Simulated assay, not measured.
Amino acid sequence: MDVKTEIIDILKDVTGLDNVGADPDEDLFADGILDSMATVEVLVTLQDKFDIEVPVSEFDRSQWSSVNKIADRVGELEN
Rank of each mutant, 00 (worst) to 15 (best):
T5A: 09
L46Y: 03
G32M: 12
S62Y: 13
E41Y: 10
D48T: 10
M1Y: 11
V40G: 09
G16D: 12
S65D: 14
T45G: 05
V42I: 13
S57V: 14
T39D: 05
E53F: 13
M37R: 10
A22W: 15
I10H: 01
S65V: 00
L17W: 14
R61D: 02
V54W: 12
V42L: 13
R73H: 06
A71W: 03
F29C: 06
N68F: 05
R73Y: 03
V56I: 13
L77F: 06
K69Y: 08
P55W: 11
G32P: 11
F29V: 05
V67G: 00
V54K: 09
T15V: 15
L77N: 00
V20C: 04
L11M: 06
V67F: 01
S65E: 12
A22S: 14
D18L: 15
M1G: 01
I70E: 02
L34M: 11
S65Y: 07
V74A: 03
V40N: 09
I52L: 09
D31W: 15
R61P: 02
W64G: 00
G32I: 11
V67P: 00
V67I: 10
A71Q: 08
V67A: 02
I52M: 07
P55T: 08
V54H: 09
E6G: 02
D48A: 11
E78M: 07
D18W: 14
F50W: 09
S65K: 13
D51R: 08
A71M: 06
A22P: 10
I33S: 02
I10K: 01
L28W: 03
F59W: 12
D27H: 10
L43K: 03
W64Q: 00
D48V: 04
E53G: 07
R73G: 00
D27E: 07
D23Q: 11
I10G: 01
A71C: 07
V40A: 13
M1H: 09
K69H: 08
T39R: 08
L28C: 04
S66R: 06
I70Q: 02
D13H: 12
V44D: 05
L34V: 04
E26A: 15
F59S: 13
L46H: 04
E58R: 15
D18N: 15
D25R: 15
Q47R: 04
I33R: 05
I8K: 11
V40I: 14
G16C: 14
E58W: 14
V56C: 07
Q63E: 03
L11I: 10
E76Y: 12
K4E: 07
L11Y: 05
F59C: 13
D72L: 10
D23C: 08
E41W: 08
A38F: 12
V42K: 03
E58T: 13
I8L: 05
N79S: 00
T45W: 08
V3S: 09
N68P: 06
P24K: 09
N79C: 00
V44M: 12
M1K: 09
D25Y: 12
S66V: 10
D51P: 04
I10D: 00
S57E: 11
D51K: 09
T15R: 07
E6Y: 02
F29E: 04
T45N: 10
G16I: 15
V56Y: 13
S65N: 15
V44N: 06
